[in-house]
Nucleic acid binder design. Structure first.
Length: 620
RNA sequence: GCCGCCGUGGCUUAGCUGGCAGAGCGGGUGACUUGUAAUCACCAGGUCGCGGGUUCAAAUCCCGCCGGCGGCUCCA
């Protein structure tokens, strides 16, 4: 809402002619002496709270300049973002009403939507001309946050035997990670003061880096990082399509004032990126929900189409997280999220899908290289839903057979009644959600999504939100943190073979063997394995060391002996320790089939760097 | 967003009670032609995060900002 306040000797206006938007009015106009004129433009985002605030402002000024008459004068020209006429009129009426309620001023209001002539005599003292811009959005945030604060959580552990115990009564002695996770969730206390291992790794391995020229939380990915990310993206996308989802693509920005999106948005306005357009303002999506829900709402869906699964890899989702919360690959403001939505006909089908997608998520993480012991399960649920679906919830614990943290609420505040997350607990004891599935009971209604049932009747479906792996960047974070745990366990850190940028490095013992090395490399390369050759003029020891610091899983040295015997001497990282390297003599074919076997059913991409190390740039 | 710590060649850093900005790695050149975690020599490379202030003099002291890390808060 925009206000222009003029303290006037008098204000005189004459009502001339209707516009299309005119409200009913039968008078001719009026003249008011010693008045505070409030030129007012009602804007799209305005609401009752904005009016309240405007009233306070106006009263404040009126008292300061000591007037007892106020004229509210609708004045569209103050804003380029006007609300529609209905809203304008109703909020102006409210404005008038609220001022009247104070019984302190004589309140006038000139008619909305008429051409009017006016004369005004501005007093010209320092307070006689003031403008005010009033926004309600900040207020919305605090309201929403207040409501959130009121939600009390009850914490339980669901044991593998199906017993539900209060968190305080659970014996954590064999569940160190779960205990850390629970403590993080409930108490949020940590006291580790150092750079997270994955941040050091992501830079040292030339995977990703901060980009100061962008906003915080937007990273750059070097060739190796891009390759890893691309493989993960392809893998998760393939898994969701295999699961039966239809891949779609939707816009990354939406009208801030779109009637359907607005409400959903207002709850979290502080975390939006806003883009100013010519006529409209836009926000950047924070997930694929908007696009897919709008698409679903326009689609013709019948019971035969259900469950209907739609998938998009959001590149990117934007969330303007608080400044102090951003860390490396763990928490970003722009991230890549596999986002699948499933439209189901009823709660039975929702539960069935929830169960299946829980299993899908376990499988996706496992194939990526994150085993069930690498993460902790949390289920968030409303008490009603739990009471009605106790057996179902308990059936979930059967899947992994490990204790689950349960957070229960007396009433539903979020859009879902049930949600699970797989949380990774890192070297600093921080927990981050990877996979998640939620049963949404609110958005089908909000977006007007429906389907036709067997009897030809329109019905409201339920919707599941599923991110089978969680954000891709966060998966990379988890893999790097996991590598750090390997170091702590006395092992050599590494990525899964299928994600290692270089899978095999060929190191010629001296310059004489470069040709042979290239020959070997091309044989391996033809088998869709990423291989490179260290042709630099360095000592063997140096080249071995460099390959090791790059976490290369297979290092093959070639020289006189290998050439003669047509074999490779391969250092296998996975089987080596910090003290001792595991060296195995094997043929090219043996090495190839070893790697092929380890990368079975995984996507492959070619090496995105020069094959020769001598011509390769360093980014960091 | 709030509080605390940090910011010196591409990287890791010394210098910080004010007085010529130093090293190692990496890079370039040359020598060496190497058998499993750093070969040797020489050379180049610095607005000391940015802006202001104090001072004869600021990487060093003060203020503001930007960025990073941690804590709080938050995580649809």
């Amino acid at each position: 809402m925009k206000l222009l306040l003029i303290h006037a000797d008098y204000m005189e206006y004459e009502v001339k002619k209707k516009t299309k938007l005119a409200e009913d009015y039968s008078g001719k106009g009026e003249r008011i002496d010693e008045v505070l004129v409030v030129f007012t433009a009602v804007e799209k985002e305005d609401n009752e709270e904005v009016v309240e605030k405007a009233v306070n402002e106006v009263v404040d000024v009126a008292r300061k300049v000591n007037v007892d008459k106020i004229l509210i004068y609708p004045y569209a020209h103050l804003s380029s973002n006007l609300a529609d006429a209905d809203k304008g009129i109703s909020l102006l009426n409210l404005f008038e009403e609220k001022l009247n309620e104070l019984n302190e001023f004589e309140v006038h209001r000139s008619p909305f939507g008429w051409y009017k002539a006016f004369k005004i005599s501005c007093k010209g003292h320092p307070l006689s001309e003031l403008s005010r811009e009033i926004k309600g959005i900040e207020e919305d945030v605090t309201q929403a946050l207040k409501a959130e604060e009121k939600v009390k959580s009850y914490w339980y552990i669901l044991k593998p035997n199906g017993e539900l115990v209060e968190v305080e009564k659970f014996d954590f002695s064999n569940y160190e990670k779960l205990e850390k996770f629970v403590r993080y969730e409930i108490a949020k206390k940590r006291a580790v003061d150092r750079i997270p291992p994955h941040v050091e790794y992501m830079r040292r391995l030339q995977i990703a880096d901060y980009e100061e020229a962008s906003d915080s939380g937007h990273l750059r990915y070097y060739p190796k990082g891009r390759l890893i990310k691309s493989l993960l993206e392809t893998f998760v996308t393939d898994k969701c399509i295999e699961y039966g989802a239809m891949e779609v693509e939707t816009p990354i920005m939406y009208d801030r004032n779109h009637p359907t999106l607005r409400k959903y948005l207002e709850r979290f306005p502080a975390r939006q990126y806003i883009i100013k357009g010519d006529k409209r303002d836009f926000f950047l999506r924070f997930a694929a929900c908007f696009g897919q829900f709008l698409m679903s709402s326009d689609a013709t869906i019948t019971y035969k189409n259900l469950p209907l699964k739609m998938y998009e890899l959001t590149k990117y989702s934007f969330r303007k997280e608080q400044r102090g919360e951003l860390v490396g690959l763990r928490r970003l403001r722009a991230f890549t999220m596999p986002d699948m939505h499933t439209i189901v006909k009823d709660m039975e089908q929702a539960k069935q899908e929830f169960f299946n997608q829980y299993k899908l998520s376990v499988e996706v993480l496992k194939e990526i290289g994150l085993e069930p012991e690498d993460y902790e399960v949390a289920i968030r649920i409303t008490r009603d839903f739990y009471e009605e679906n106790r057996d179902f919830v308990h059936s979930l614990v059967e899947i992994l057979r490990k204790p689950i943290l349960i957070e229960m609420w007396d009433q539903r505040f979020f859009y879902f009644v049930l949600k699970f997350e797989f949380n990774f607990v890192d070297a600093l004891d921080k927990a981050s959600a990877l996979s998640t599935v939620q049963i949404d009971v609110e958005n089908a209604e909000r977006y007007g999504i429906d389907f036709v049932d067997e009897n030809g009747k329109k019905k409201r479906p339920l919707i599941l939100h599923c991110s089978a792996s969680g954000a891709i960047e966060r998966v990379m974070y988890a893999l790097l943190e996991k590598a750090y745990f390997m170091v702590e366990g006395g092992k050599l850190p590494m990525l899964p073979i299928w994600l290692s940028p270089t899978q095999v490095r060929i190191i010629p013992v001296s310059e004489k063997f470069i040709d042979y090395a290239l020959n070997v490399a091309s044989k391996i390369e033809n088998e869709n394995i990423r291989v490179d050759v260290d042709d630099r003029d360095e000592t063997l020891g140096k080249k071995i060391r460099d390959a090791a610091t790059e976490w290369i899983p297979y290092i093959a040295v070639v020289g006189e002996r290998e050439m003669r015997e047509n074999k490779l001497t391969v250092t296998i990282r996975k089987e080596s320790t910090q003290q001792e390297q595991k060296k195995v003599t094997m043929s090219i074919d043996e090495l190839v089939s070893l790697i092929k076997d380890e990368c079975k059913n995984k996507p492959f991409k070619k090496l995105c760097l020069p094959k020769l190390l001598s011509v390769r740039p360093t980014f960091i």
